[in-house]
């Protein structure tokens, strides 16, 4: 049961859709109550309706940002779902062999949340680097939320977080204990860069990537938004690169620029040029 009227729900849901592409259906009305409670308290808003009114104020940009961030989902864990990282291990030697000496391998963790996905890739690469013969690897993590990007940059995780998906041998090898928290070691932190970025925006300035992770994000978007985001990601992907989506996500029916890689689940590659022009 939500404390918001249909008008208030529509106003806030419309804002989140416009800013983040996220579709909040009326059955998610409870999220407004639970996730915006702290903002109501902080801003002394008497109700969600009062907050919705304040969001219409053109000077309310920080408030808009806080509301959108509060209504986005930031679930993350190390080596989430396992299988994509197994594929990365298999594809890295081929990408390394195909690139000229001195060229960097580039990986994008789009919608990186608090950084576990980007750091999982760094951890995996730390074990694989001998096979990559000293090749430099850049990992870029981006997220809409300033708060989670700041946390990702910090590279500090709670005891609970480091136990979700991270083998204990990696924990003791690559993290430093600081009180009850765990900080990723500087060498791995240095492999990753994090920045705020809206997936609905323009990404050409980022350059090309060999691997792109964009998992469990499209599920929150409507069909046109999914198609737009997939086309934008495809434009940044190397011809022999791979795009990783979540288990409940697909490119089928959304874009002809990406095709499933044979025998893989949730892994896509650029469509052959012939297929694109057909």
């Amino acid at each position: 049961m939500s404390g918001s009227s249909p008008d208030t729900f529509a106003a806030i849901a419309g804002l989140v859709k416009a800013r983040a592409g996220i579709v909040l259906t009326p059955d998610k009305g409870y999220m407004l109550d639970t996730r915006l409670a702290a903002i109501l308290r902080r801003g002394n808003f008497a109700s969600l309706a009062a907050l919705a009114q304040a969001l219409r104020d053109p000077r309310g940009e920080p408030l808009v940002r806080d509301v959108v961030e509060a209504l986005t989902t930031n679930e993350s864990s190390f080596f989430r779902d396992g299988k994509p990282f197994e594929h990365v291990k298999r594809i890295l030697p081929a990408l390394h062999a195909a690139r000229p000496a001195g060229a960097r391998l580039r990986i994008w963790s789009a919608a990186c949340s608090t950084g576990q996905e980007a750091y999982s890739l760094a951890l995996l690469l730390a074990d694989q680097l001998p096979a990559l013969a000293g090749r430099q690897v850049d990992i870029l993590g981006t997220d809409l939320s300033r708060e989670v990007v700041e946390r990702a940059r910090e590279g500090v995780f709670s005891q609970f977080e480091v136990q979700r998906g991270l083998p204990v041998q990696m924990l003791v090898k690559h993290f430093i204990q600081e009180g009850g928290k765990w900080r990723i070691k500087p060498a791995l932190r240095a492999m990753c860069r994090f920045e705020e970025r809206n997936l609905l925006g323009e990404h050409r300035g980022l350059g090309g990537f060999d691997l792109i992770f964009c998992r469990n994000v499209l599920i929150y978007f409507d069909t046109p938004t999914k198609a737009k985001v997939l086309a934008a990601l495809a434009a940044q992907l190397a011809p022999d690169g791979a795009l990783y989506l979540g288990g409940a996500e697909t490119v089928l029916g959304l874009t002809d620029r990406l095709v499933p890689l044979p025998g893989e689940r949730g892994v896509y590659g650029p469509a052959p040029a012939l297929a694109r022009s057909a």
Binding site: Q163, R164, V168, V172
Partner: peptide, 29 residues
Amino acid sequence: SEFSRIVEALQAGAQEYIMKPFDATILGG
């Protein structure tokens, strides 16, 4: 949950290590 304790357990032959409290996601992982 001290680092030295975790290392001690691994050196003694533990395969994995859970710091309480834990839930089914941590245990299953």
